[in-house]
Design a protein around this nucleic acid. Sequence first.
DNA 1: TTGTCGGCCGATCGCCGACAA
DNA 2: TTGTCGGCGATCGGCCGACAA
Lengths: 229, 229
Amino acid sequence: VDPQIWRACAGASVQIPSLYSRVYYFPQGHVEHSCPSSLISSFSTAAPVPCVVSAVELLADPITDEVFAHLALQPISPEHFSPSNFSGFGSDDDDDNNSSSSNKVVTFAKILTPSDANNGGGFSVPRYCADSVFPPLDFHADPPVQKLFITDIHGVVWDFRHIYRGTPRRHLLTTGWSKFVNGKKLIAGDSVVFMRKSVDEMFIGVRRAPISTHGDEYYGGGKKGFRRI
Amino acid sequence: VDPQIWRACAGASVQIPSLYSRVYYFPQGHVEHSCPSSLISSFSTAAPVPCVVSAVELLADPITDEVFAHLALQPISPEHFSPSNFSGFGSDDDDDNNSSSSNKVVTFAKILTPSDANNGGGFSVPRYCADSVFPPLDFHADPPVQKLFITDIHGVVWDFRHIYRGTPRRHLLTTGWSKFVNGKKLIAGDSVVFMRKSVDEMFIGVRRAPISTHGDEYYGGGKKGFRRI
DNA sequence: TTGTCGGCCGATCGCCGACAA
DNA sequence: TTGTCGGCGATCGGCCGACAA
């Protein structure tokens, strides 16, 4: 998986230690994962183990498209564990709603409304997304319309009809959108991430909504485009 | 799973050793399963181990509905291994196209034609199946029609509309059939098994076609109702 | 007896502008 | 600017008898 695409799908809040950086391994974390009831075991008081990151794999679940990372850790002796090189994270200077700068992945994320996910198969494209990450339309045409071929994290290409119509005018994805929603099993509250890596390379990713209380409030009363954690 | 239903789904050619019968365990079989390349290892010449069947579980795959059995084997010393009780199989005196006898499961299996699996959502019910396993229709009605509620191996109930119509007359399953085909992901060449256990208890099972060379010939040039192996 | 086909009717899908938040 | 709604036209699913193997 392309590291730039992986990071854009994961979002700015996800930080992965860089290769050969030094980290602490907490056995307690593993124990919690495998058996929540063993929290009060002898392991929970075990000391953290100094390690060096010996391998980093950026991966994506083949079913859900959710991104995750495999980290291999090599224990090292504490005396070599200087804080100087402690936990160096990869470059984290990108943002979800990022304006374009040279040679960077332009990204836009939107939380799906019920209309995006349920209704007649369309997607309301926020103006900023259409302007900054979609290729420009020919506004002399009536209506302005184009086909978008967008690659997901597995390399599968999805095609969408992008049209600018209605009164007042707005950007929409029509044909192809509902196939994507069904294929990825998206529901209101999930997010979709559009990325443009170069002038003719577009990518699309998904983020599942946290704690899925399907049927309850979908995406909170906060400001538009920002997910409540 | 009801043993009678399990056996009807598996078919007459499947034989399961009965509980506490004596069998030989061939380690070679396990090795082939886990690693085909190790056929020429020291295990392949290991002697078969005399065992007694200490547990039998008749199960069905929750996804594919395919039936399978779990057998627990207890090794025993060879001197106790008399051939008198060797490999006693369960009663195997039923057949797919069985005529009714008292207190038995009446069974009928049919290989799906392309029309059954692909076309307008209908299923051609062979005359013998309608007569012997389906409840009788009221032939005074025009057309004769009834609802069938049939249970699959997981206990899920499917309902079908059974109608006798057309010129010449024939038995058909219409409403409900395509939902079943899609739900079980059946294709032409797969089989469906209808069973009647008592006057108001019907069951339905599926058998997947062997080696799935989808798109090639579906169910061979043999006589109708017999699958080529 | 039963597998396949074309017809046809109704349900659903999905594109559309109107409106309002 | 954009989320939701009702409309409506096109597509598809699925029930039907005709016909032939």
